[in-house]
Design a protein around this nucleic acid. Structure first.
Lengths: 331, 331
DNA sequence: CCCTCCGCCGAAAACGTTTGCACAAAAATT
DNA sequence: AATTTTTGTGCAAACGTTTTCGGCGGAGGG
């Protein structure tokens, strides 16, 4: 059916071993033979069957990135980082989506168990910490962006507690004392940590926590709109709102805009993620920027290191974030 | 090193053939043997090496989706369609990004040539039509969303000419006669077709074409802003603007908003794609919606059909689009 | 009682590579 | 000139599966 290395060998009048050697740029092969092989390859339009190769070498030089969906736009930058780091080491990055289904996430990890890829990095896993820990013992798994409590797996992320605290502290430094929080019902670790940061900032500044100021919704923009409405209808309105994601913040601002609130003066808004739209949407949103590219790069570098060595680094690396100050905080 | 089918066979006291049979749910195996094998599999934590399997069966049951980047948010829906159709047939979908680099796109297609995947779908390819046509002769390639002129490859897309015409016709039906067009310098076929639709609509309604009303920029929102500014500074301002993408339209509206133009009355805006943000951004954008999910579903269905049969369907399928009317056209 | 058939199973070939080993010829060293 | 080293090459094993083929034993029909 298909053209194999044997056909090339025959056409070039050499053995398959020799063909393999010139294809893999091994040194001990004569110029004549090499030329003959290359010509045959070109003539026949041969390209090697990686299933055979990978089986023999038992490595695929491929890494699988497992994400929830391609919708979260800031995954894009992380993936670029991953690809860059992978390319340096001669690896390819493949992407697959879990559709928020832990069962399907497990199915995708099957590619790892079945040696179809050499390693996998989880971005926002749906599986529980214990399961991932267990799988991580025998397979090359890493996590990125999102950490999991008690998960003994190589992780690259940011310090979400600190980041949340920094954002809220900034709002406080602008004289705000009544700060709303719009977060999610779904308890991802990053949400939890960012909320924790919010709490800490309040506490450190002697501002009493008021539970009426926190709204639990979903990750949709519409949920932010609802949250903002709820907060603004409080007897004592907030003078600033911290949302745990930019999408939510944009939704919240939509409510504010529609009711004529003077954003950046009357109420300050702070988001998280610095998605592309946060500087397209007017007014421009102040937000926390994650080093997306760097996280992706680092997680792949560390993962590949783990794959090559006997010992396995299971550390949690936290990369520095930064505050991006724009119009919604009056900057 | 790793646990193989041999180990399972030994543990279950049967031959590897039997193990393979129970793993593949073949009928002719006794209940006793099956049970023994299943127990052994569980005990040893065995999972089959797909490299071996795929090599033997010479199929991987995987399809590669090649996209420019994960940034374009409406890819997401297409991918879901692809995954759904693939799952039905027992295939997985992998995603890889070209980073807008034709050379890297070719590298990714190498996965197809090297039998690491059974088929590939190109979404917005960077390679030229001729190259893709040639590769399509010997490999299972399909295109989705974007068609290429003179490209003899299975394609699923929409009728962009017709869609552009419909959008502009709608603006005309609202009494507009001076309609601006914001498009891209980069000549993708969809842009060309949408422009063509714009022209046709004007012509059919006896509106003379005015080249000053068309602005050539990039795909960024900022470019839309610039385009809108340019159009609005014309001696005779447009009374409607059609942008070939929602991102551009949103950028354009940013300019309009900042200069106090009454969107939806003074100037109508029409976008294209119906991205997620087009109904979050206020005012809500009227736009052309593509059947993304359906395109993805169909392209995979057709591709798999091609893979199974000897003959190869190279048709272009055009799925119906629809107009979504919102605030920016006064609806 | 013999033959046939069927259910179940194992041996071995095959898929397409890479690579250790052996070996001849050529080159370099005595 | 005799020895050793180097260079280039081919043979064949190995990677982990699936699947064909044939064999064995027992059941059922004549």
């Amino acid at each position: 059916m298909s053209i194999t290395i044997k056909d090339v060998a025959k056409a070039a009048n050499v053995s398959v071993a020799t063909v393999s050697r010139v294809l893999n740029k091994k040194t001990n092969v004569s110029d004549d033979a090499a030329e003959a092989v290359n010509r045959a390859v070109k003539e026949l339009g041969y390209s090697p069957n990686f299933l055979g190769r990978d089986l023999r070498k038992s490595e695929t030089r491929r890494i699988l990135a497992i994400i929830a969906s391609t919708e979260q736009s800031f995954y894009s930058e992380v993936l670029r980082g991953m690809e860059e780091a992978a390319a340096v080491k001669g690896y390819d990055v493949l992407i697959a989506t879990t559709r928020d289904d832990p069962k399907h996430e497990m199915h995708l990890l099957g590619m790892l168990f079945s040696r179809s890829v050499d390693g996998a990095v989880l971005l926002g896993p749906k599986l529980d910490s214990e399961t991932i820990s267990r799988l991580g013992e025998n397979h090359n798994i890493a996590m990125c962006l999102e950490r999991l409590e008690n998960c003994n797996v190589l992780t690259v992320t940011i310090d979400n507690v600190r980041a949340g605290k920094d954002a809220v502290n900034y709002l406080i430094s602008k004289g705000r004392r009544r700060i709303g929080l719009i977060t999610t019902k779904q308890r991802s670790q990053s949400s939890i940590d960012r909320e924790l940061g919010y709490m800490q900032a309040l506490e450190e500044n002697g501002i009493p926590f008021d539970e009426r100021l926190v709204f639990y919704g979903s990750y949709e923009a519409e949920s932010g709109t609802k949250g903002c409405e709820a907060l603004m209808k409080l007897p004592e309105k907030p003078d600033a709102i911290f949302s745990i994601s930019d999408m939510i913040a944009i939704g919240a601002m939509n409510y504010a805009l529609s009711t004529g609130i003077d954003i950046g003066k009357e109420v300050l808004f702070f988001g998280f993620d610095d998605i592309q739209y946060s500087h397209i949407f007017v007014p421009h949103l102040s937000t926390v920027r994650q080093p997306c590219f760097l996280q992706g790069k680092m997680v792949v570098e560390k993962l590949i290191e783990n794959m090559k060595s006997e010992t396995s680094d299971k550390s949690i690396y936290m990369l520095p974030h930064s505050l991006i100050l724009r119009e919604t905080t009056g900057d």
